[in-house]
Write a protein that binds this DNA or RNA. Structure first.
Length: 589
DNA sequence: CGGCGCGGCGCC
DNA sequence: AAAGGGCGCCGCGCCG
């Protein structure tokens, strides 16, 4: 059963069964929304709404979770660009309605190139529903909004049904929508954060917290050493321009102040300068100001943006949640009586590539062991490090250097895997779109990119024009090469996480005497194990100690289930590095 | 003054 | 050690 959620007249929330559209299941005030959902949830409906971010936080605040949903905005963004729906959308079939808000990674350029549709760029949050409801009142047309939602749901269902891969797309839309629920839940739950531990890290690295406008003592010391070694009385190390000038005056011939370039030079100023930059980064990205802004009541609550990147990987907004430096992860500490289950998928991307390409030899290299060691055992390369660089090079499109040199060896060992990424690169170089395992397609290159290509094929094109075109074609080819692997790996991760979420709910019903979480997790999360962090191929579950082993087993089971969902009985394995630890830093072993 | 591009760097 | 993909955030410095 599905229930469509939208704003009706007079600010009332309408809940409508698409099978019986004329009579709403409920028509209620916003205040009564959470109670209505709590009532209806036991029959396990799929909640259909425009935007999970608009509705779900309100439910979570009231202590209500839902099992599943269909996020029309996120699913529309996938369907309106997928090559799998291209023929269904051909000749103006199933046009996207102008009111449907743009997806998080949709740009006007990408959307227009593909569908010709105009992507609405108005506010996409709760205002959207309210605004539309207001409109329907003005025109006097009753329930216009929910009619629109029903129509959009049917449009999306039709696109799936008429697509070249209905099964894969259904799975992708379910996984994407589950991701939207999980993102909202992780924000509500928060990542348990020990302020005192973080402050200790800062004090050890930087020194005592300075007064506002001052720098920590360790940074001042290092800055003094750099100035002495450069022989300049004053240079602001935070100014790239000033620093570059000072370096060159001291005879250090660099073109940038990037660490990798500085390291090439042998000069007494380099070591303290690199150390300074490291501390400056810690200070500005995750220093005391960050703690004050982002850690409240023992929880770090970033805003997750499911589907926030072109490949389907998530983004975050605010707090830099996906860039937590390793040295502050010690501050991620479980509540008393609780623990963390930390797991990441080992060498996920090459394994996903093996499965997609149905490359038996590649799958075998990773079976029962570290994938990179498998390459060494198979005699493809000599060392694990070489294996890593070779694989990285294959998936990112390296052509030069050590990495590029190793790629041909992979091509002979794993012809099917390499052929898949090579085809993706070739498609990108032509300006085409490539598609992940489940059906998310890459955006088309910009008009400017196409203009550069067109210029090179004009009769009076210069050698420089041709060079420029070739170079930008290869750039885009590297993007599409990586897109299919990164995007399909993101799909594996979504399936893993969605399956885990289901299994955690089962475990939750067995928790008897857990100490309620000390932090401000809210009523939904204070007794049950729940996801608190997701980083592309890595998850953290915060769980009462008494069920930690069951949670760890569920994490494993969910990983194997995700492999089967995506690749059936093709023998590719997805081993995890898993640890049950008090602190995130302890998972790194 | 705010907006924005850029260099630099953290993560995968 | 290795130079290829995806991001977000910071400070700086320029611009209107």
């Amino acid at each position: 059963m599905q229930i469509v959620v939208g704003m009706g007249e007079r600010g009332l929330v309408r809940l409508v069964d698409p099978e019986l559209p004329d009579e709403p299941v409920r028509e209620i005030a916003l205040d009564a929304f959470a109670d209505a959902v709590r009532d209806l949830e036991p029959s396990r409906p799929r909640w259909v709404w425009v935007d999970t971010r608009a509705w779900y936080p309100r439910l979570l605040a009231a202590g209500v979770r839902v099992d599943r949903c269909h996020d029309l905005r996120l699913c529309g963004a996938i369907l309106d660009h997928s090559t799998a729906t291209a023929s269904a959308r051909g000749a103006g079939g199933h046009p996207r309605p102008g009111w449907l808000p743009a997806g998080p990674a949709e740009t006007d350029a990408a959307s227009q190139a593909d569908t010709g549709a105009r992507v609405a760029v108005h506010s996409t949050l709760f205002d959207f529903d309210a605004e539309e409801a207001g409109e329907s009142t003005v025109t006097g047309a009753a329930a216009t909004l929910t009619d629109r939602l029903l129509q959009e749901l049917r449009r999306q269902e039709a696109l799936v049904a008429e697509s070249s891969a209905p099964g894969a797309l259904r799975l992708l839309l379910a996984a994407e929508s589950a991701g939207a629920l999980i993102g909202a839940e992780m924000h509500a739950a928060g990542l348990p954060w020990d302020r005192a531990v973080h402050e200790r890290v800062l004090e050890v690295e930087l020194g005592a917290r300075p007064a506002p406008g001052w720098k920590p003592s360790r940074m001042e010391e290092l800055a003094g050493r750099v100035r002495r070694e450069l022989g300049v009385a004053s240079v602001n190390l935070d100014s790239q321009a000033e620093l570059l000038r000072a370096l060159r005056l001291s005879g250090i011939q660099v073109d940038s102040t990037a660490r990798w370039e500085l390291r090439e030079h042998d000069h007494a100023a380099i070591e303290p300068l690199i150390a300074y930059k490291k501390l400056a980064r810690l200070m500005s990205a995750n220093g005391w100001a960050w703690l004050d802004e982002w850690v409240v009541d023992g929880r770090f609550r970033p805003e997750y943006v499911p589907g926030g990147t072109a490949t389907g990987r998530w983004a975050t907004s605010g707090g830099g949640a996906l860039q937590l430096p390793k040295n502050v992860r010690a501050a991620v500490v479980a509540d008393p009586g609780w623990t963390l289950v930390v797991a990441d998928a080992a060498q996920l991307e090459p394994r996903v590539l093996a499965g997609m390409a149905r490359d038996e030899a590649m799958a075998a290299a990773g079976r029962g062991r570290d994938f990179y060691l498998g390459l060494v055992d198979a005699g493809v390369v000599a060392t694990r490090d070489e294996a890593k660089y070779a694989i990285l090079g294959a998936m990112y499109g390296a052509t030069t250097g050590e990495s590029g040199r190793l790629v041909p060896r992979l091509a002979s060992a794993f012809p099917r895997g390499m052929a898949l990424v090579d085809r993706a690169a070739a498609e990108g170089e032509r300006g085409g779109s490539v598609t992940t395992l489940l059906g998310r397609s890459s955006p088309f290159p910009s008009a400017q990119w196409r203009a550069v290509q067109a210029r090179a094929s004009e009769p009076d094109a210069t050698a420089a024009d041709e060079r420029r075109a070739r170079s930008s074609a290869r750039d885009w080819g590297r993007f599409t090469r990586n897109f299919v692997v990164q995007g399909s790996a993101a799909e594996w991760s979504l399936c893993w996480m969605a399956g885990l979420r289901m299994r955690l709910d089962v475990i939750a019903s067995t928790v008897s005497s857990a100490t309620p979480a000390a932090g401000a997790s809210g009523p939904v999360f204070d007794r049950a194990p729940h996801l608190v962090y997701f980083l592309h191929d890595e998850i953290i579950v915060h769980t009462p100690r008494e069920v930690a082993d069951e949670v760890a087993a569920a994490v494993e089971t969910a990983a194997q289930a995700a492999g089967t969902l995506l690749f059936g009985d093709f023998p590719v394995e997805f081993p995890l590095d898993l640890a049950i630890v008090e602190s995130y830093a302890m998972a790194d072993a």
